[in-house]
Amino acid sequence: PDSPLARWTKSLHSLLGDQDGAHLFRTFLEREKCVDTLDFWFACNGFRQMDLKDTKTLRVAKAIYKRYIDTSSIVAKQLKPATKTFIRDNIKKQQIDSAMFDQAQTEIQTSMEESPYQMFLTSDIYLEYV
Protein backbone atom coordinates (compact mmCIF):
# COMPACT_ATOMS: atom_id res chain seq x y z
CA PRO A 1 0.00 0.00 0.00
CA ASP A 2 1.06 3.59 -0.64
CA SER A 3 2.63 5.46 2.22
CA PRO A 4 1.22 8.94 2.84
CA LEU A 5 4.42 10.43 1.46
CA ALA A 6 4.09 8.46 -1.76
CA ARG A 7 0.54 9.75 -2.07
CA TRP A 8 1.61 13.38 -1.61
CA THR A 9 3.80 13.20 -4.69
CA LYS A 10 1.07 11.53 -6.75
CA SER A 11 -1.16 14.59 -7.07
CA LEU A 12 -2.13 17.83 -5.43
CA HIS A 13 -5.50 16.26 -4.73
CA SER A 14 -3.98 13.41 -2.73
CA LEU A 15 -1.78 15.85 -0.82
CA LEU A 16 -4.79 17.97 0.14
CA GLY A 17 -6.80 14.90 1.14
CA ASP A 18 -4.25 14.03 3.80
CA GLN A 19 -4.32 15.94 7.09
CA ASP A 20 -0.56 16.14 7.59
CA GLY A 21 -0.01 16.86 3.91
CA ALA A 22 -2.53 19.69 3.84
CA HIS A 23 -1.08 21.12 7.04
CA LEU A 24 2.49 21.05 5.77
CA PHE A 25 1.50 22.51 2.39
CA ARG A 26 -0.34 25.29 4.24
CA THR A 27 2.81 26.12 6.23
CA PHE A 28 4.74 26.28 2.96
CA LEU A 29 2.15 28.58 1.34
CA GLU A 30 2.13 30.87 4.37
CA ARG A 31 5.84 31.34 3.89
CA GLU A 32 5.33 31.99 0.17
CA LYS A 33 2.53 34.48 0.98
CA CYS A 34 -0.08 32.65 -1.05
CA VAL A 35 -2.03 30.73 1.57
CA ASP A 36 -5.24 32.41 0.35
CA THR A 37 -5.27 30.11 -2.66
CA LEU A 38 -5.46 27.05 -0.41
CA ASP A 39 -8.10 28.52 1.90
CA PHE A 40 -10.16 29.46 -1.14
CA TRP A 41 -9.83 25.90 -2.49
CA PHE A 42 -11.12 24.46 0.79
CA ALA A 43 -13.85 27.12 1.01
CA CYS A 44 -15.12 26.02 -2.43
CA ASN A 45 -15.28 22.39 -1.27
CA GLY A 46 -17.06 23.39 1.94
CA PHE A 47 -19.52 25.57 0.04
CA ARG A 48 -20.40 22.76 -2.37
CA GLN A 49 -21.52 20.63 0.60
CA MET A 50 -23.80 23.31 2.06
CA ASP A 51 -27.57 23.13 1.96
CA LEU A 52 -28.91 25.66 -0.56
CA LYS A 53 -32.10 26.07 1.48
CA ASP A 54 -30.09 27.24 4.49
CA THR A 55 -29.88 31.07 4.67
CA LYS A 56 -26.28 30.67 5.85
CA THR A 57 -25.30 29.43 2.40
CA LEU A 58 -25.95 32.79 0.70
CA ARG A 59 -24.00 34.53 3.45
CA VAL A 60 -21.07 32.15 2.93
CA ALA A 61 -21.17 32.72 -0.84
CA LYS A 62 -21.03 36.47 -0.20
CA ALA A 63 -18.21 36.04 2.30
CA ILE A 64 -16.15 33.98 -0.18
CA TYR A 65 -16.78 36.60 -2.87
CA LYS A 66 -15.84 39.51 -0.62
CA ARG A 67 -12.77 37.87 0.89
CA TYR A 68 -11.18 36.28 -2.20
CA ILE A 69 -12.73 37.59 -5.40
CA ASP A 70 -13.77 41.21 -4.97
CA THR A 71 -10.34 42.21 -3.66
CA SER A 72 -6.77 42.41 -4.83
CA SER A 73 -6.02 39.03 -3.24
CA ILE A 74 -3.82 36.50 -4.98
CA VAL A 75 -6.93 34.45 -5.76
CA ALA A 76 -8.56 37.35 -7.65
CA LYS A 77 -5.31 37.90 -9.56
CA GLN A 78 -5.23 34.31 -10.75
CA LEU A 79 -8.86 34.11 -11.89
CA LYS A 80 -10.05 34.88 -15.41
CA PRO A 81 -12.13 38.08 -15.62
CA ALA A 82 -15.11 36.13 -17.01
CA THR A 83 -15.02 33.78 -14.03
CA LYS A 84 -15.11 36.70 -11.59
CA THR A 85 -17.96 38.37 -13.50
CA PHE A 86 -19.96 35.15 -13.47
CA ILE A 87 -19.66 34.85 -9.68
CA ARG A 88 -20.34 38.56 -9.11
CA ASP A 89 -23.55 38.35 -11.18
CA ASN A 90 -24.73 35.28 -9.27
CA ILE A 91 -24.15 37.05 -5.94
CA LYS A 92 -25.90 40.21 -7.15
CA LYS A 93 -28.96 38.27 -8.28
CA GLN A 94 -28.75 36.17 -5.11
CA GLN A 95 -28.80 33.15 -7.42
CA ILE A 96 -26.66 30.71 -5.59
CA ASP A 97 -25.83 27.28 -6.84
CA SER A 98 -23.61 24.54 -5.39
CA ALA A 99 -21.43 24.66 -8.51
CA MET A 100 -21.06 28.45 -8.73
CA PHE A 101 -17.41 28.41 -7.56
CA ASP A 102 -16.41 25.26 -9.49
CA GLN A 103 -14.79 27.06 -12.42
CA ALA A 104 -12.90 29.42 -10.10
CA GLN A 105 -11.73 26.48 -7.99
CA THR A 106 -10.48 24.67 -11.08
CA GLU A 107 -8.49 27.73 -12.19
CA ILE A 108 -6.90 28.09 -8.75
CA GLN A 109 -6.17 24.37 -8.57
CA THR A 110 -4.47 24.41 -11.97
CA SER A 111 -2.32 27.32 -10.93
CA MET A 112 -1.41 25.61 -7.62
CA GLU A 113 -0.47 22.44 -9.54
CA GLU A 114 1.73 24.37 -11.95
CA SER A 115 3.76 26.24 -9.41
CA PRO A 116 3.48 26.04 -5.60
CA TYR A 117 2.83 22.28 -5.54
CA GLN A 118 5.97 21.59 -7.59
CA MET A 119 7.97 23.99 -5.42
CA PHE A 120 6.60 22.35 -2.27
CA LEU A 121 7.89 18.92 -3.34
CA THR A 122 11.44 20.25 -3.48
CA SER A 123 11.15 22.61 -0.49
CA ASP A 124 13.10 22.26 2.75
CA ILE A 125 9.79 22.03 4.66
CA TYR A 126 8.88 18.91 2.69
CA LEU A 127 12.38 17.40 2.66
CA GLU A 128 12.81 17.86 6.40
CA TYR A 129 9.49 16.13 7.00
CA VAL A 130 10.50 13.25 4.77
Binding site: L16, Q19, G46, A63, I64
Partner: peptide, 20 residues
Protein backbone atom coordinates in the same frame (compact mmCIF):
# COMPACT_ATOMS: atom_id res chain seq x y z
CA UNK B 1 -25.76 35.10 14.74
CA UNK B 2 -22.34 34.17 13.37
CA UNK B 3 -20.43 36.89 11.55
CA UNK B 4 -19.58 36.37 7.87
CA UNK B 5 -15.97 35.73 8.83
CA UNK B 6 -17.00 33.00 11.29
CA UNK B 7 -19.21 31.36 8.68
CA UNK B 8 -16.41 31.44 6.12
CA UNK B 9 -13.95 29.98 8.62
CA UNK B 10 -16.39 27.18 9.48
CA UNK B 11 -16.91 26.48 5.78
CA UNK B 12 -13.13 26.18 5.22
CA UNK B 13 -12.63 24.01 8.30
CA UNK B 14 -15.49 21.69 7.33
CA UNK B 15 -13.68 20.85 4.09
CA UNK B 16 -10.28 20.14 5.61
CA UNK B 17 -9.16 16.51 5.89
CA UNK B 18 -9.85 14.84 9.22
CA UNK B 19 -7.41 12.82 11.29
CA UNK B 20 -6.58 9.46 9.74
Amino acid sequence: MDSEDDLLQKCITSAMPKQR
